[in-house]
């Protein structure tokens, strides 16, 4: 079964301004997909449509086989969680454990079960020692990890991160991507990571590039990164390592496109040694 499926979906905010245009897109269960795109490419709209926060103008959307529509919203939202961008605009309660409990309370779980869910969720994001902390005193990365825990407490099968790292510093970003990768590998949660940081897409099984409401590129992260000229036309800058590869080639050192630092070092070493002989 597909975790998410968009069939010919369109959505517009205004009259002619299409945010999403005839989109066909699907995510397999257990997959880790990165959705890349510049501002206004429609990638956040994609997240909101998946959860029924926005209603599509045309086409069909399925989450875990269920059509995303008014009468299913509750079930859909139990299974598809979204972590949003701003760490300050997601927490409902002031204390970590109270906020994590919010979703579980909403679906009417018994008290003991909520307690277990909080334990599980905070442990999964590595915040178990902050259980009684005041959220406003945490760092951005920690706040986002609490937000992830709040979603996890509902035990969703799919988790969408809608630019959840955009407002964080590099360290906070690393905290989030580490957690997400682990959730995907260990808890087998399907992950859709929406971002404009290309390097974050490296973690994914598959990357999709959006531009003006359409999917314009699709493939493994390595494949996508090797098409840098194309990426630039969509206003996406290469990650540092890609820029280095490109620079080296232009400087006359014929290295291939790689995302692995070790591998690049080896290639450089080979080139240099073969030339000195």
């Amino acid at each position: 079964m597909k975790a998410l499926e968009f069939r010919n979906v369109s959505f517009s905010y205004g009259k002619d301004a299409f945010a999403i245009r005839n989109l066909n897109f699907s995510v397999e269960e257990g997959e880790f997909v990165a959705v890349l795109g510049h501002n206004g490419s429609g990638k956040s709209t994609l997240a909101r449509l998946s959860d029924g926060l926005l209603e599509a103008d045309g086409g069909e959307i399925f989450a875990l086989g269920m059509p995303v529509e008014q009468k299913n919203l509750y079930e859909v939202r139990k299974n598809v969680g979204i972590v949003f961008q701003n760490p300050d605009n997601q927490a409902v309660a002031s204390i970590v454990e109270d906020d994590v409990a919010f979703g579980a309370e909403n679906v009417g779980l018994p008290r003991e079960e909520i307690g277990k869910r909080i334990d599980f969720a905070l442990k999964a994001v590595g915040m178990e020692t902050h259980r009684h902390a005041t959220i406003s005193r945490l760092s951005g990365g920690q706040k986002q990890r609490v937000a992830i825990a709040g979603v996890l407490a509902l035990k969703p099968k799919v988790m969408i991160l809608d630019e959840s790292t955009a407002m964080l510093d590099p360290r906070g970003r690393r905290e989030i991507t580490d957690v997400v990768l682990r959730l995907n590998k260990e808890e087998h949660i399907t992950v859709v990571l929406i971002t404009h940081f290309l390097e974050e897409a490296l973690l994914a099984d598959r990357a999709v590039v959006m531009n003006k409401g359409e999917i314009v590129m699709e493939g493994t992260p390595a494949d996508i990164f090797s098409r840098h000229e194309e990426l630039l036309t969509y206003n996406l800058a290469l990650p540092r390592i890609g820029q280095i590869c490109k620079g080296l080639r232009e400087g006359g050192i014929p290295v291939g496109d790689t995302l692995d630092v070790e591998k690049l070092a080896e290639e450089i070493a080979q080139c240099v040694s073969s030339r000195s002989i």
């Binding site: 909101r48 959860d51 926060l53 509750y74 939202r77 979204i82 409902v92 979703g103 909403n106 979603v151």
Partner: peptide, 10 residues
Amino acid sequence: ELGDAMDARC
């Protein structure tokens, strides 16, 4: 945004 986040958490 908070409203959306609350909706998303059922």
